[in-house]
């Protein structure tokens, strides 16, 4: 009696599970007792569409309406090409500098304990919180000919503000937290046992770091690099104050967009915008691929 009862309940639950599974296979959303899916998703999608998708699509349609030949002509205009080179070149240099120094900063913050560590840790986020215009005027004054850093350097004959080096300084500032905050959590969760194992197998500290620790950090380093690079390419506020903004020489692509818009030359502005958007999406894709690869290889990032 008891046995047949359990069998019949298990049969009933089996069929319940089966219906549930069948329904899941057919429906857009997995059934849940929690209310509010329709409202919250509907509101989110509406807001997203109105604020982000329609305006972005508007720009894409507007530049597509120019036709491929005209788009190509605008995108390969010498001043545009130079501006893109300045933007991408200085962003690359800045992101590479951030890889080195961001790694040192993350390492120091995670591995060593010393007075003032918490303060350093907190200040790393400053570029996230400080408005770019404020950063721009502060950096251009600090590294300018009469600034605390610029004045001693100018005695040595080194100029930073109003030269390409100034653009790179501003972009390092903007990108640093991306690098540190991507590497830091991975470094924190790295098992110390791995290093102990390497040491007991006869590796010296340098070998342990270059062959055991750095390969494990590689996905995070690449992600941090890509994030810092992508952010730097689009940066406007902090750069224009410290750069000399000379056309063909030290003019960044976002500044050229602003100039074209002020001339009411929207087609040229949107052509530059499209080039930058396409590259930004490729970067986003690369980041996702790196993370997928890292998940396959190391479990989680």
């Amino acid at each position: 009696m008891a046995a047949s009862l359990t069998r019949s309940t298990s049969l009933a639950s089996d069929s319940l599970v089966r219906t549930a599974r069948r329904r899941r296979a057919w429906s857009f959303v997995k059934p849940s007792v929690i209310p509010g899916f329709g409202v919250t998703l509907g509101l989110s999608l509406t807001y997203l569409t109105l604020v982000v998708l329609i305006p972005l699509a508007g720009m894409a349609i507007r530049s597509a309406a120019l036709g491929p030949a005209e788009l190509w002509r605008l995108a390969t205009d010498q001043r545009t090409v130079n501006a893109l080179w300045v933007s991408f070149g200085s962003s690359l240099v800045a992101a590479l500098v951030n890889v080195v120094f961001g790694l040192v900063v993350a390492w120091v913050l995670v591995r060593y304990s010393f007075r003032g560590r918490r303060l350093l840790d907190a200040i790393v986020d400053l570029p996230f919180a400080l408005p770019t215009a404020v950063a721009g005027i502060a950096l251009s004054t600090l590294y300018g000919p009469s600034g605390w850093i610029g004045a001693p350097l100018s005695h040595l004959g080194i100029k930073i503000a109003y030269t390409p080096a100034g653009i790179v300084i501003a972009l390092i500032f903007i990108g640093l937290p991306f690098m540190v905050r991507t590497v830091q959590p991975v470094l924190e969760e790295l098992e110390q046992e791995l290093e102990e194992a390497a040491a007991t197998l006869g590796a010296n500290r340098f070998q342990t770091i270059t062959r055991v620790i750095l390969p494990r950090l590689l996905p995070a380093i690449l992600t941090g690099f890509a994030l810092a690079f992508a952010r730097a390419v689009g940066e406007y506020g902090s750069v224009i104050f410290i750069a000399s903004n000379i056309p063909y020489k030290s003019e960044i692509a976002p500044l050229l967009i602003v100039i074209r818009l002020q001339e009411f030359n929207e087609p040229a502005a949107s052509a530059i915008g499209m080039v930058m958007l396409v590259i930004a999406f490729v970067m986003l894709l690369v980041i996702n691929l790196i993370q997928a690869w890292a998940r396959r290889r190391y479990g989680a990032v």
Partner: peptide
């Protein structure tokens, strides 16, 4: 909830972070 296209939606939400601020303003001008 678990629903179809969830990770795509998450990516869409991130778009403004990967767009240059200048472009963010320009799309409304256009």
């Amino acid at each position: 909830y678990e629903f179809w296209g969830k990770s795509f939606l998450t990516t869409l939400i991130d778009i403004p972070f990967s767009v240059s601020p200048v472009i963010s303003g320009m799309i409304y001008v256009i």
